[in-house]
Amino acid sequence: MRLIASDIDGTILGHDGKISDRTVEAFAAAAEAGIDIVFVTGRPPRWLDPIRDRLGHTGTVICSNGAVSYDLGTERVTGAHVLDWATVDRVRTIVSELAPNPYFALESLTGFHVEKGFHGTRAAASGEFVPGPLTPDMADGGIVKMLAVLHEGSADDFLDLVSPRLSPLLAVTHSAPDLALLEMGPLGVNKAVTLAEYAAARGIEATDVVAFGDMPNDIEMLGWAGAGYAMASGHPQAIAAAALAAPRFEDDGVARVIESRLAALRLA
């Protein structure tokens, strides 16, 4: 084990926004043992405060499902894959033809853009996002993720409905457990692709990587890593895709696996 790659939400971070003391201690012990640590998330860079504040992480975070590499210490984007406007416009047309009343948003390197109705009856994560039309000039900021939401149904059903038409155009997945929200990024880009690049730059083979995740957007990463652990509390597709299982998030599953693997290293 030379590198630990972990998803954030539902894997080490709860819906209450908290990371347990045991998890904090496990990551600290891994870092003390010289293990490289990288977090791999669907979150944008602006939502990484829990990782820095609780875990003291100031290294790389792979964000937006692999579309962005971000240095948390310097608060700087170090790499990005982007969507062009023609793809965004085509995808919006296809989804609108297939699904009832979809709403869209765009995550760019310069901000988050939501159209009116995207949040529905839910409050926005922050009051800073003012709904408005999505326009071609937003591509100038480097679009790294497109989101589509339905205010009824499930993300699984939404994905099944649109993916046959969208898969040739861009990467499409989901990670919201209770919302029909799809996350779409540049074609051929996912968590595994960017994690592999990160590891290769450090001379680390996939066989030396331990990865943790819980949702469909983690599937490729869990399959690529030499030891890919799906959380027992995770999505059935993630569990089915992973060779290994970690205990439930509620039982500090990631911490338990890290503790066990570090103990094995000490005995080796």
Rank of each mutant, 00 (worst) to 15 (best):
N65L: 06
S96L: 06
V61D: 06
L55Y: 04
A99K: 03
P131E: 11
L55C: 07
P133R: 03
T58R: 15
I51K: 03
E75R: 14
A80D: 10
A67P: 05
E128H: 11
D71V: 09
E75W: 06
A125E: 12
K116P: 05
N65Y: 03
I37N: 05
I62F: 06
D89R: 07
V130I: 14
A67E: 09
N101E: 15
I37W: 03
I37A: 09
G120L: 14
F39C: 11
V40S: 09
E97C: 09
A124N: 10
G73Y: 04
G141K: 00
E115F: 03
M138Y: 02
S108G: 15
F112C: 07
H119W: 15
H113K: 00
A80C: 09
A123E: 14
D84E: 12
F129I: 14
P133N: 04
S126H: 10
E128A: 14
H81M: 08
V77N: 04
T93E: 14
G59K: 03
A67R: 01
D137C: 01
E128Y: 07
F118Y: 15
D71Q: 07
P44W: 01
Y103A: 14
H57E: 12
L109E: 02
P44Q: 08
G127R: 12
S96K: 03
V95W: 02
E115D: 08
E107Y: 02
T74E: 14
G59L: 08
A105K: 00
D89F: 03
L98V: 09
P50D: 10
T93F: 07
V68C: 06
V40F: 05
N65E: 13
P133E: 11
T93H: 11
G66T: 12
P131F: 06
A139S: 15
N101I: 12
A139V: 02
G111C: 08
E97M: 08
R92P: 03
L48C: 13
R122A: 15
A105H: 00
T60R: 08
P136T: 01
